[in-house]
């Protein structure tokens, strides 16, 4: 379950960010990823709960994953951007390049972004 490693990487980054603030607790983290990122949102949330279970500043916080468009790079014409349709029926990740029509395309993986973190801060 690589979602555990991913959730751990997210928590590590958030811990670093919240050092700059007078944080009472983290309320919500929003990440975004394409449907082709090999991440099952439920498993990511499960892993996040396991990791943060005993972390006081993450108590009752939630990790939400928003789905964003996939990004491909065409080997033939160097187009980088969204594919216009689903992958090849035989090869699920061979997307059609909207510019030149080639299916010799590379799906850009590991594009998960930590978008925002909602914090409860102490004003004191």
């Amino acid at each position: 379950m690589h979602e555990y490693s991913l959730a751990s990487a997210i928590v590590t980054q958030i811990e670093e960010i919240i050092k700059k603030y007078n944080v009472i607790r983290v309320k919500k983290i929003i990440v975004s990823a394409s449907p082709y990122e090999m991440v099952i949102p439920d498993l990511l949330q499960e892993a996040y709960k396991i990791i943060t279970h005993e972390m006081e500043k993450f108590k009752d916080s939630e990790l939400l994953m928003e789905i964003k468009a996939a990004e491909i790079t065409c080997i033939e014409c160097d187009y980088t951007g969204e594919p216009t349709e689903e992958g090849d029926p035989e090869f699920a990740y061979n997307f059609l390049c909207p510019k030149c029509g080639s299916r010799d395309t590379h799906i850009n993986m590991k594009q998960m972004i930590i978008e925002t973190v909602d914090l409860e801060l102490s004003e004191e």
Partner: peptide, 16 residues
Amino acid sequence: MVENKQISVKKKAYVV
């Protein structure tokens, strides 16, 4: 006093 604040992160999860 308690303040709620949303921080824009915009960093790749795999960056480290």
